[in-house]
Design a binder for these strands. Sequence first.
DNA 1: ACCTGAACACCGTTCAAGT
DNA 2: ACCTGAACACCGTTCAAGT
Lengths: 221, 221
Amino acid sequence: MSTPPISRRARPAKAPLSRDVIVRTGLDILDRDGLDALTMRRVAKELDTGPASLYVYVANRDDLMAAMLDEALGRVPLTADGTWRDQIHALANATVEAMSRHEGLATVALGAIPTSDNALLVLDRMLALLKEGGLDDTTAAWAVDLIYLHLAAAAAEESAYTTKGGEEDDTIAAADRRYASLDPRRYPMITSLRQALFSPGDRDAWGLNVLINGILHTPAG
Amino acid sequence: MSTPPISRRARPAKAPLSRDVIVRTGLDILDRDGLDALTMRRVAKELDTGPASLYVYVANRDDLMAAMLDEALGRVPLTADGTWRDQIHALANATVEAMSRHEGLATVALGAIPTSDNALLVLDRMLALLKEGGLDDTTAAWAVDLIYLHLAAAAAEESAYTTKGGEEDDTIAAADRRYASLDPRRYPMITSLRQALFSPGDRDAWGLNVLINGILHTPAG
DNA sequence: ACCTGAACACCGTTCAAGT
DNA sequence: ACCTGAACACCGTTCAAGT
């Protein structure tokens, strides 16, 4: 009673493989089921093929993830309105957003000097803003590196908190309880400043302002 | 002619398993053969047992890596001489050092709010220095978070460059060539500032000074 | 030329069964 | 009570063999 598997040829035409479709499928899997689900085999299955077929378009898993990061960064709006500071904040927030909404991608950014098309577009735009702010070449150059590092780290942190199993609030509450139970003799500052450590507020915006103000006050070289 | 395997009981006494010896063995493997070699099975083999035995002392691989990070941070000297700035730099450099010399550990720090004994000791000491600098509680609290994030990111980056296959210089040279080949119309700032982007200098010290100066000029809240 | 089945050499983790 | 052999359910990557 069982029918033999329908030959590939007889089935409806399958979307042809390409680097692009593989990358987008990877991003979909990441968003739907997280970093652990992002395996070559899973991507292949989603595309109705075997894992070996992916290697025609992608060197390996790291290469795929780098391409996924680039794709995600391609969705960052490169221009914004407002003051100079507003524009830096907008570009920075969009970059963090783009990285942190896909679990594990920020870590890729932390692991290599940016060389992909869309990462370089973000960097180029940030560099233009920094030069507009009156920085000399060296300071602007070092600053863009520092800011990009910070954005990737902020995205990695955010991504870890929002994705890892439970809710962000649970993670914070657990840390708060841990801090509350510390020995004040061993950890005098943490115990006495615990309130401040968990105080609410826009830390991302503050952190970026720290960087901007610091860069303005600290010539490189 | 072959002898049967000597029974466990007959062999020289094996060092007893413990969380501590597992953690230190993990660190050894990381240093000797890198992150990919750090598997539960490899740790077990090094300790002359099976992977299942590790789970008595360690919840899983993530737990092991977190414990390894804590062990590494335990080697950070918490006090230093010099000016206020010198002391911050010394603590920061030692922290980056501790993380970056073991491939992949910095990433662990980026993925969770610090709650381990030795991470908290570093934080407590940094908090004391920040308060000494005259910061209010909230600013000091937010600042220690920001600095720790930056140190972990700096360590992750450094670790990636120094460990990943070839030499650091090769990675930079490759990036430089890539930047040199970019279309100036699409990447006007990167191409015109390429010299500055790859200019030598102590970027770590500069980056930390940016943070310190920025924090001093940017009250939180 | 392009694609892929099958295999290789591994993983982390669990648990029933041993001592 | 403590430990672990063996198994489960996977991995990334390669390559010979197919069309």
